[in-house]
């Protein structure tokens, strides 16, 4: 038996916003420690890794580790039945091939129960090495979102360059070229507004911009996000959800032919 209740049920809605444009179906790995997911996009260029700790839930029960496959388009439809302030309970009986989602209003005056079929999904699990990155930049997630959206109307690829002076996003297209630099800035009162650059070695990498736009759909999960870069390695874009868990995106760079 698996059962987990989230007081802030809309957390799952927010997570799905970031997932559904990247992968259409995925296995959720349920274990006593929590819920995790790893899935690649169909072109095997980007990967999403989600982790939600068991203690992020109000009551969490997972009797045995199990993978449950879900169609994320269908899950998004089901989640429309949940109000933004509703609690959300997920229930899956080990002997059944379905999951039950229960949405309850905070005032306990509305109760919705939806059952959704599970599916068998063949998925490749990749081992992601624990990298020491050349550069880690933390910045407000809204700012990152705005930058990648603005640049995506100018070009298709983005060159990300980190030096001790800051992080620069550059693109070019028919319209012209654009460079946006964010310098380290810790003068604001709120830490979530800070931009910090942790640099071991200067690094420059080029990526397909549209993936960054997709990753930025997770902006509502966290005020801060981080970009971790190493020479000739996939970039890691992370949105940490406090001590509840995280969603991480990996994107393979463009390389010289």
């Amino acid at each position: 038996m698996f059962e987990a209740k989230l007081i802030q049920g809309n957390l799952i809605k927010k997570i799905m916003e970031g997932l559904k444009d990247l992968v259409t179906e995925a296995n959720f790995d349920l274990s006593p420690g929590g819920v995790s997911l790893q899935a690649m996009d169909s072109s095997h260029v980007a990967l999403v890794a989600l982790m939600l700790r068991g203690d992020a839930f109000e009551n969490y029960r997972c009797d045995r580790p199990r993978s449950i496959g879900m169609n994320l388009v269908n899950l998004s439809k089901v989640l429309k039945c949940a109000g933004n302030d509703d609690t959300m309970t997920l229930k899956a009986d080990d002997t059944q091939n379905n999951i039950t989602l229960v949405f309850e209003s905070q005032a306990e005056d509305k109760y919705a129960e939806v059952q959704m079929e599970l599916m068998d999904i063949d998925s490749e699990h990749l081992g992601i090495p624990d990298n020491t990155y050349d550069a880690i930049v933390k910045m407000p997630s809204a700012q990152f979102s705005q930058i990648v959206k603005d640049l995506s109307s100018i070009g298709d690829t983005v060159t990300v360059s980190v030096t001790k002076d800051g992080i620069t996003f550059s693109t070019s297209g028919d319209v012209g070229t654009a460079h946006i630099t964010c310098k380290q800035n810790t003068s604001m009162e709120k830490e979530a507004d800070h931009t910090t650059v942790n640099l071991e070695h200067p690094v420059t990498l080029t990526f397909a911009l549209r993936y960054f736009v997709t990753f930025a759909k997770s902006t509502s999960l966290s005020h801060q996000m981080s970009i971790s870069l190493s020479k000739e390695l996939p970039v890691m874009v992370e949105y940490a959800m406090g001590d509840m868990g995280h969603i991480r995106f990996y994107l393979a760079p463009k390389i010289d032919d």
Partner: peptide
């Protein structure tokens, strides 16, 4: 430039 795939960097586990 060409787009690399993730499997070039991460191994299947």
């Amino acid at each position: 430039m060409s787009q690399a795939k993730l499997t070039k960097f991460f191994t299947k586990s």
